[in-house]
Design a binder for these strands. Structure first.
Lengths: 156, 156
DNA sequence: TCGACGTTATTCGAATTTGAACAACCTGAA
DNA sequence: TTCAGGTTGTTCAAATTCGAATAACGTCGA
């Protein structure tokens, strides 16, 4: 058991900044989407990912990985979206067990309407608060963090 | 209604990196704390904040603001911690409505035991993945983001 | 061909979170 | 002093999240 390497002042500042920014940005976006588009952030993300897929469809497990959520959580949210007609399910042609989540025309329409307000909120809460160099560093550093943590992830 | 300013490539990279890093780091820490200390991250944060306060105590509303959570959510978590003897409540001497959350000796002990593992996880999932310059930039930029969003917050 | 083993999506119960409603209380200006 | 208006912490119902358990299905080597 090694001696604990505590955080020094600048490490602490980075950590607290990261935590606080994560929380506040998340809250900001959640509220904006809820108010202006009637969607939760998880729901919005599902629509975004689906639209980016060929034919607007993808396997449930793959989608769960993209969204960094649990499979059961995705089942629930896709169920919500299906109820509202923004997504539908169809069974996978190559694997009887498989389910494809598919974005509907209505889903695309809702997404198209929600996107401008969402992008504005992302700018207001993060992007436009950063200098160009900061943006660059953030993209590089946090991209590395995400990729690093993506590796040693237990299956959900 | 202005034309939407969509995100360019580097802005998108920063945004996606931020989102993904937030999610993955949060998951990593949640699991580590649960496994090694039997605490959720919110609970750990409550203990940390309390210990940093004079006499290890603070008003509920102030604590909720520090933690960036709702008042009702805090009521619940403090209730959980009280059940386990890590925190106790006492009424505020200067305001009959007020309640002070107080960390107990047992709470301090549990926190002391949990801290090394938590710091190690924070290092492994974020801090030690960053170059010194990146750390500096992150602290500055995300600190600004947090402070900016702290201002226009609706009361909870 | 046949199992052993891993995958797939869902269901279930338990835990957690939120905002609204609420009762009780402070505060400051008239 | 009074009282309108804001605060305080809790309770409540509803929504969401997670992991374990489950049933059904692929895959691969012997």
């Amino acid at each position: 058991m090694n001696e604990t390497r505590w955080l020094d002042e600048r490490e602490m500042a980075a950590w607290e900044g990261f935590l606080q920014a994560s929380n506040r940005v998340a809250r900001h976006l959640e509220q904006q989407l809820r108010d202006e588009a009637g969607l939760s952030h998880p729901q919005y993300e599902i629509l975004v990912r689906l639209e980016a897929c060929p034919h607007g469809e993808i396997r449930m497990t793959e989608l769960a990985d993209l969204l960094i959520t649990s499979k059961s959580g995705l089942t629930y949210q896709v169920g919500q979206l299906e109820r509202r007609g923004l997504v539908r399910r169809r069974s996978c042609p190559t694997d009887v067990r498989g389910v494809l989540a598919v974005i509907t025309d209505e889903g695309r329409r809702v997404l198209r309407e929600a996107a401008p307000g969402h992008v504005a909120a992302v700018r207001a809460s993060l992007i436009d608060l950063l200098e160009p160099e900061e943006l660059e560093v953030l993209a590089g550093a946090l991209g590395r963090v995400g990729r690093r943590l993506a590796i040693d992830r237990a299956p959900g």
